[in-house]
């Protein structure tokens, strides 16, 4: 007896995890990039399940749109040699696997033992207005700082990507 939201959760979780695995396991970096978009989309779906529609929109616009496109651009600009073997492991992938797996085991086991008491109050239907209020009210300064950060990052990225004269 599964209700619809539970079914949706399992489906989205499965897509997200599978796509993420594909990102790290595939040998073609273009494929990895495409599966990354899929992962971002899956996460956006999970946000909708969590009644964070605004965040889901942001996720799709920024991640699945901007970031993924940026990555694909970078892949294209730095492409060299065989694209089919463009996303290989380095020399310590085994150790990386062990560490990641160990961390996963700890997280899963720890998570299984945590019992959270859910808040009794039901969530409001839409919280876009609340987010807007928070941004322009309580979090106004961080909001502005984030804007400055984006500006700095943009200038920095342009400078770096344009490249000066090679030092040598």
């Amino acid at each position: 007896m599964l209700d619809v939201s539970a079914l949706l959760f399992w489906l989205l979780a499965a897509i997200t995890i599978a796509a993420a695995l594909a990102v790290v396991l595939l040998k073609n970096i273009v494929h990895s990039a495409l599966y990354l978009v899929l992962t971002f989309a899956g996460v956006a779906g999970i946000y909708i399940l969590l009644q964070a529609e605004f965040l889901a929109a942001v996720q799709l616009l920024i991640y699945a749109g901007a970031v993924a496109i940026l990555i694909v651009f970078a892949v294209m600009l730095t492409r060299r040699g065989d694209i089919k073997a463009s996303n290989l492991y380095n020399f310590n992938y085994l150790a990386a696997g062990v560490v990641s797996l160990a961390l996963l085991v700890i997280i899963i086991l720890g998570n299984g033992r945590m019992a959270w008491t859910a808040a009794p109050a039901p969530a409001p239907a839409s919280n876009v207005a609340a987010i807007a209020n928070a941004f322009l009210g309580r979090y106004a300064i961080p909001f502005e700082v984030a804007a400055v950060l984006l500006l700095v990052a943009m200038v920095g990225a342009i400078l770096l990507a344009r490249g000066g004269k090679p030092e040598r």
């Binding site: 150790a95 560490v99 160990a102 961390l103 700890i106 086991l109 720890g110 033992r113």
Partner: peptide, 15 residues
Amino acid sequence: TAVVIIALWMAAPVL
């Protein structure tokens, strides 16, 4: 690796 070790240590009561 250190994070894993620290996490193990901190999570020991739970685990």
